[in-house]
């Protein structure tokens, strides 16, 4: 368990400590005639920081969605080499002696290749966020299913799943990600995913998801266990509602809040994880940009090209910070008891 794990766990840890809106509380509030979601929205609107990071996240998402389209129509150009903008004799540094910033290349050009940095960061965000989001979805879905099953079926199933959870949590995740990469990318390729980056990306998504779900499964299991005993479930049961109805109509709606908050906190952890794995040599490789492989390359320019050194790092930091703050904000909004 080292830094990536910690990154992952940091999200999970905070979620665990203070998440879990009291279902009872939401019920009480409903009496006033406003739904919990309306309440949350009202609370969010008063939270300036969260509103700002929400805007940043929204912008990042829009940019990430648009980047591939803009690349295709030629507004962004992440892959064309510009040998005329770099100096082959200085190791390919931008010709202007700085980062090569200009109107055409607002964030400069990449040393060694002359590719446009802004385009690469934008498209890098697309790939990094796709990887992180896919892994988050797997984490949340798998965690929810396992948590629900354990919590609802109880008994041996619960014991069995809980032990699996304990075990997966005991694996040194970073090491597993690194050590399994060779073989499992091979398996993924043999299973029909195109070789190269599609397989590399799929590997990261799968393995982050497969090692990430236990924490959320624990949370959901705990929620289910406590909800099961609540009055409104008992009421539903005594009214003759079917089990199926109880699961989907009564239980699931009460799990949305923790899932949303947890998902928001897992996302930045996975963005960091992608970067860390790139540094260790696992993951999507250039020329396909990701924030991770951009940063892995740019740290080499710490002394020679400050802007190129900083931009990818700042891009990652803004994303990670925004998602983390958004998660906090959502938690506060969805859980009125949480103290800020």
């Amino acid at each position: 368990m080292s830094e990536i794990k910690r990154d992952v766990e940091f999200g999970a840890g905070t979620a665990q400590e203070t998440l879990a809106p009291e279902p009872g509380a939401t019920q009480e509030k409903a009496i006033t005639g406003r739904t919990p979601w309306q309440l949350a929205r009202a609370r969010l609107r008063r939270d300036k920081i969260t509103m700002v990071v929400l805007a940043v996240v929204a912008l990042a998402i829009v940019l990430a969605i648009l980047a591939p389209i803009l690349s295709i129509i030629g507004v962004l150009d992440p892959e064309t080499f510009h040998p005329e903008l770099i100096d082959g004799n200085t190791g390919g540094l931008p010709l202007d002696g700085g980062g090569g910033l200009s109107l055409q290349h607002p964030l400069g050009v990449e040393p060694g290749t002359g590719r446009d940095v802004l385009s690469r960061i934008a498209l890098g965000m697309t790939f990094s966020m796709t990887v992180a989001l896919s892994a988050t979805l797997i984490t949340v879905v798998l965690g929810t299913v396992m948590g629900l099953v354990a919590g609802l079926l109880g008994g041996k199933t619960d014991f069995f799943i809980s032990r699996i959870i304990d075990m997966v949590l005991s694996f040194p995740v970073t090491l597993m990600l690194l050590a399994l990469s060779g073989m499992f990318i091979d398996i993924i390729t043999k299973a029909g995913v195109p070789a190269g980056n599609p397989s590399n990306g799929a590997y990261i998504v799968l393995v982050l998801g497969l090692f990430g779900w236990p924490t959320i499964a624990r949370i959901i299991r705990g929620q289910v266990l406590s909800l099961r005993e609540r009055e409104f479930i008992e009421a539903a049961r005594s009214l003759g509602a079917s089990n199926r109805r109880i699961y989907f109509k009564e239980l699931l709606p009460n799990l949305w809040a923790p899932l949303l908050v947890y998902g928001t906190l897992v996302m930045p952890a996975y963005i960091s994880a992608e970067a860390a794995l790139s540094f260790l040599g696992v993951g999507i490789k250039p020329p396909t940009p990701t924030l991770g492989n951009l940063l892995t390359y740019s740290v080499n320019y710490a002394a020679a090209d400050v802007t190129f050194f900083l931009f990818p790092a700042i891009a990652i930091a803004i994303l990670v910070l925004s998602f983390n703050l958004m998660g906090d904000g959502l938690r506060d909004a969805l859980d009125p008891k949480a103290d800020r």
């Binding site: 368990m1 080292s2 830094e3 990536i4």
Partner: peptide
């Protein structure tokens, strides 16, 4: 969790602890 090695920090600083040993072994 850390006692078993900080993979990235040990790699960056060339510390020959369990984390770097793990990277060396894995790669």
């Amino acid at each position: 969790g850390l006692l078993a090695g900080a993979i990235i920090t040990e790699t960056v600083f060339n510390y020959n602890g369990l984390g770097k040993l793990a990277v060396q072994a894995a790669t």
